[in-house]
Simulated assay, not measured.
Amino acid sequence: MTYFVLSLVFLAVAASVLLIALLVAPDRARVVRRWWPGILVSAMAVLVLTAVFDNLMIGSGLMQYDEDNIAGVRLGLVPVEDFAYPVAALLLLPALWLLLRKRAR
């Protein structure tokens, strides 16, 4: 299994959980309006930090990737697949918050 396929699986699971969470949330329109600015700012910060620190870790030899298992597209030294995990977290964490929050009666 390539890193790209594994990344797609992570993203599909996270997106599915978010979709379910939004579908069952009675106040989904308000939540989406309220959350988008914060999610976009968080996404930018997490993606920039991922790019910087993954480049440092790969450059120092802490991490290595099998060239046969990556898509070949890189941002610096970082395979593009590496960005799927922070994006999945950005989808999954708000979804879990929605699913696990207490609702007013």
Rank of each mutant, 00 (worst) to 15 (best):
R101P: 06
P79M: 03
W35K: 10
L98E: 13
I20N: 08
I39Y: 07
R28T: 08
D68Y: 10
E81R: 07
V87C: 09
V87G: 05
I20T: 12
V73A: 14
D68I: 08
G72C: 06
L40K: 04
V48A: 15
F4R: 08
A71G: 14
P94L: 05
L18E: 04
R101A: 10
L8T: 05
L98A: 08
I70G: 01
L40M: 12
V48I: 15
S7N: 10
V52W: 14
A89E: 05
R103S: 11
L11D: 03
I20H: 13
M63Q: 11
L40E: 07
Y65T: 03
L40R: 08
W35P: 00
S60K: 14
L99V: 04
W36T: 10
A21K: 00
R34E: 12
L19F: 13
R74T: 02
W35Q: 13
L18N: 00
F4Y: 06
M57Q: 10
L77Y: 05
V52F: 13
Y3K: 02
M57Y: 11
L98S: 07
W36I: 15
L22R: 11
D66F: 06
A21H: 03
A15I: 01
M63N: 08
V73W: 13
A12E: 11
L92N: 06
A25C: 11
L93R: 09
V17K: 05
W35A: 14
V80C: 01
L91P: 00
A29H: 10
M1T: 10
F83A: 03
L11T: 04
A84I: 07
A14R: 01
I39L: 15
D54W: 01
V17I: 15
A104Y: 05
A88Q: 01
F83I: 03
L91K: 03
D82C: 12
A95D: 00
N55R: 02
Y3V: 00
T2L: 07
L49G: 15
D68N: 12
F83V: 03
K102Y: 04
L8H: 09
L6I: 13
V52S: 03
A51D: 00
E81F: 06
V73E: 11
I20Y: 14
A12N: 09
A71H: 09
A104Q: 10
L19I: 11
R34M: 10
V5L: 11
L18T: 00
R101H: 06
L40S: 11
S42Y: 04
L18D: 02
D66K: 07
R103P: 02
S7E: 04
R33T: 10
S16P: 02
L93P: 05
V78C: 02
A45E: 03
L23I: 05
A14C: 08
L96W: 07
L19S: 12
V52Y: 14
R103H: 12
I58K: 00
R28C: 05
N69E: 10
V5I: 12
L96D: 08
V87I: 15
L75S: 02
L96Q: 09
L23V: 07
T2N: 14
P26M: 09
A51M: 05
G61R: 07
V24I: 15
V13S: 06
T2H: 11
V80Q: 01
I70F: 07
P94V: 02
V80K: 01
V17M: 06
R105L: 11
A43R: 04
R101K: 14
A104L: 12
P86W: 02
T2K: 09
V9P: 00
V48W: 12
P79A: 01
R103Y: 09
F4M: 08
L62C: 08
